[in-house]
């Protein structure tokens, strides 16, 4: 990835009106302002999020995850590969990695991107606030964000 010159960005991805899906927001709010780092909250992923990341040098997306045990925290690099033959059959459903690949294919500077994911339960009803298991993961996730910022 070629990256851009807009520095570092941390994006909390998720809907705070859907219970544990708001864990990303809870993490960045607990993190507080960080010098020299932009911090956003977003609900929209895929290509629109990829477009918003254009120009940043490094980005970290903090997101809820259905594929991890509830409360588990994992920091993973986002692999922005080539656009595969199945990419974009339905463009609104393009994932973040594929969106970034499309933008890179078009010559735009996309950032080196990581994801900090926190396991949440599959049932996410309307309502605010985190479940106790997910709330307990927030300090560990904040520590991971700080580590990422320090590197």
């Amino acid at each position: 990835m070629n990256g851009g010159s807009r520095g570092r960005l941390v994006v909390a991805l998720g809907n705070p009106d859907r219970g544990d899906d708001g864990v990303g927001q809870a993490v960045v709010r607990a993190l507080g302002p960080q010098p020299g780092v932009e911090v956003w909250e977003a609900v929209r992923g895929g290509l629109p999020l990829a477009e918003a990341l254009v120009g940043y040098e490094r980005a970290l997306v903090v997101d809820a995850c259905l594929d991890l045990p509830v409360g588990e925290v994992a920091l993973v690099p986002l692999f922005v590969g080539e656009l595969g033959p199945e990419s974009g059959r339905w463009l609104h459903g393009l994932g973040l990695a594929q969106g970034l690949a499309l933008l890179r294919e078009a010559g735009l500077p996309v950032p080196r991107t990581w994801a900090l994911v926190i396991g949440v339960p599959a049932d996410l009803p309307f309502g605010q606030g985190l479940s106790p298991e997910v709330a307990r993961a927030v300090p560990r996730a904040v520590a991971e964000v700080k580590k990422w910022l320090a590197n």
């Binding site: 199945e86 990419s87 078009a106």
Partner: peptide, 27 residues
Amino acid sequence: SARNVLGVLQAYPELGREVVAVRARAQ
């Protein structure tokens, strides 16, 4: 296998890149 975004970008590379770039300006 080619009826997708990639196929469009390969068939019309300049236009495809311009579309992405101008869309980013609208954004």
